[in-house]
Design a protein around this nucleic acid. Structure first.
Lengths: 101, 101
DNA sequence: TTATAATATGAACATATACTAATATATACA
DNA sequence: TGTATATATTAGTATATGTTCATATTATAA
């Protein structure tokens, strides 16, 4: 990739960056990631904690998983999700603090 | 507002945070903000530099202006836009660097 | 005032997005 | 094997979003 001091953003960088921010641009995904600040949660655990449908949570987790913002650990039939990108989680934390200061 | 150590995000914080990230979740707006890293630009200046329609730029600038991510300085009939949120610009810069490491 | 340049706005359109219900898949265990 | 539990997937729908064209607005200068 390399962007160096080139003033133009290449297509790939533009895509990755916009996708990353898009992931944080939805209230449901923010709530999920915010929950994962503390500890890992199962899919149903997230659904119950946030009053969301299992299907909704699963869809959003797939989205976040594709961007490698979350990972999971299997325990029987249960999948325990946790965050997997410190940079993004820090940005989220900062922005939340910034918003409710 | 205040979010303190309450584990739940209140509606308003959730809205502000998601709107902020949503602003950075579109390639066109990223390109515009990236251009404004360097110096102020007129609406037509942005349109020419990025090969976008004047109308498109104006719409996106209104979006960014509503979130106070940009401001403008009038010079005759020309409006010179510049960035207006250090926190957001730093996040963008970091994420771009992060993406094209 | 009229003409010109720069920007903003409104409506229409196509696409993207998020949620839901229903169903499929996968794992564990009797 | 069959059953129960947890999660994933598919298809449908409603809404949100981004771009464009055409037009309106605003400020300047003649």
């Amino acid at each position: 990739m390399e962007n160096d001091n080139n003033n133009d953003l290449d297509e790939e960088t533009l895509f990755v960056v916009s996708q990353t921010f898009k992931a944080l641009g939805d209230p449901t995904r923010i709530r999920i990631l915010h929950l994962l600040f503390q500890k890992e949660y199962s899919v149903n655990g997230i659904a119950e904690a946030l009053h969301l449908r299992q299907s909704t949570v699963s869809h959003q987790l797939r989205f976040l998983k594709n961007l490698r913002l979350v990972k999971y650990r299997r325990e029987g039939t249960t999948l325990n999700y946790s965050h997997d990108d410190e940079h993004v989680m820090n940005m989220l934390k900062q922005t939340i603090d910034h918003a409710c200061h």
